[in-house]
């Protein structure tokens, strides 16, 4: 018989393939050349070292938001609030980066730490409400996203600047930007953040697979009642899962604030890094290694898409459609499993 593990690898791969095929069909129906479109996409993501650097840059925050959502998922929680946690992390990192002077070995770690702390706090509130009052975390985190968005805008305008639309650039002692990596990739915006993101993936794997905390979190995710009966504190674990999840998302925000942009701009809508993280976590089957691979795929799709309008005339939103379809297929894995099993039966 085929084990669950085998399905867990097969379902995402099939979903991606169907997603890309659907994208090809959409291009064909809309009168574009799908081969030309995908070649442009591929060149835009890997065509030369500049594009590759940009792909890695885009992958960096995706890994972290993917980890955030995957971590909460493992404890049975759905953290839609990664978006808001990214915003507060970004704001906190830029705040520390612009408002103080310190040598790099203090300034940069402090900015990262405060970003993670801000994200953790933004995750703590829904975690506490869920644990204490049984309020569904999905709704609270959605509401927290908007509170973060509007509050961050107000703080940028009123506190960090004098009614300007963006903050000052952070001090170089808090920056993740790297002349070495930029030089290596023809001056892309690639920065050291990727190492932090990969390190975070190792930490997530370690917590989940090798510690008591991880064991309890997974146990609570599987069956709250059994965990309680076994003497675990379900409430503490729920809060802890949301706090750690929020910290990952806060770090993702600091990647944008300290690495890619070096500042923060007033925004009328979301960056979508947090929402895309949902797709990353789902496709990565909520495992650390899966998240890294899925983040790389979505990073390549998003960056490569920017090359499609100029080289194939295809609007880059095609990639958003493809990503949405991939989410549908992964989420509907029940039916994919059913079809696979059906085929297997007929062979016998």
């Amino acid at each position: 018989m085929h084990s669950n593990k085998w399905f867990n690898i097969l379902v995402p791969i099939i979903s991606v393939i169907i997603g890309l095929l659907s994208g090809a069909i959409i291009m064909l129906v809309s009168g574009y050349n799908p081969i030309q479109g995908y070649v442009a996409l591929f060149n835009g993501a890997f065509g030369d070292l500049y594009f590759f650097g940009e792909t890695i840059r885009q992958t960096t925050p995706y890994i972290l938001t993917g980890l955030a959502i995957a971590f909460a998922f493992r404890a049975g929680l759905f953290n839609i609030g990664a978006e808001g946690q990214v915003i507060v992390g970004w704001l906190a990192a830029v705040w520390i980066g612009t408002s103080m002077e310190a040598p790099m070995y203090i300034h940069l770690p402090l900015a990262l730490f405060v970003a993670a702390l801000a994200g953790a706090f933004w995750g703590f509130i829904p975690g506490l409400l869920k644990a204490r009052l049984g309020v569904h975390e999905v709704i609270v985190t959605i509401m927290m996203n908007y509170i973060a968005l509007y509050s961050a805008n107000a703080i940028i305008r009123r506190v960090l600047t004098d009614s300007a639309d963006k903050t000052e650039t952070i001090a170089s002692s808090a920056s993740l930007a790297s002349e070495w990596l930029e030089g290596l990739t023809y001056f892309s915006r690639m920065h050291y953040g990727i190492m932090i993101a990969l390190f975070a993936a190792v930490i997530m794997w370690f917590i989940i697979e090798r510690t008591n905390i991880g064991y309890e979190l997974k146990s609570v995710g599987y069956n709250q009642h059994a965990s309680k009966y076994a003497g675990m504190s379900v409430k503490r674990n729920i809060v802890l899962a949301m706090v750690i999840s929020g910290a990952f998302a806060g770090l993702a925000g600091s990647m944008e604030g300290l690495g890619t942009y070096g500042n923060m701009t007033v925004s009328s809508g979301f960056s979508n890094i947090g929402f895309d993280g949902i797709a990353v976590a789902l496709l990565g089957a909520n495992t650390a290694i899966g998240v890294v691979l899925a983040a790389f795929l979505f990073g390549a799709l998003k960056v490569g898409a920017l090359n499609m309008p100029t080289h194939a005339g295809v609007p880059n939103e095609l990639v958003d459609i493809i990503i949405a379809l991939i989410i549908f297929f992964v989420a509907s894995s029940y039916i994919i499993r059913w079809i696979i099993l059906r085929f297997k039966k007929e062979e016998k």
Binding site: A279, I321, Y334
Partner: peptide, 22 residues
């Protein structure tokens, strides 16, 4: 298809915006 309803809803949001702007 017994998909997670929240996930499916998130996908609807992506899909509508992607299709609309495309």
């Amino acid at each position: 298809f017994r998909a997670d309803q929240v996930v499916s809803g998130v996908a609807i949001n992506f899909l509508a915006l992607g299709l609309g702007v495309f």
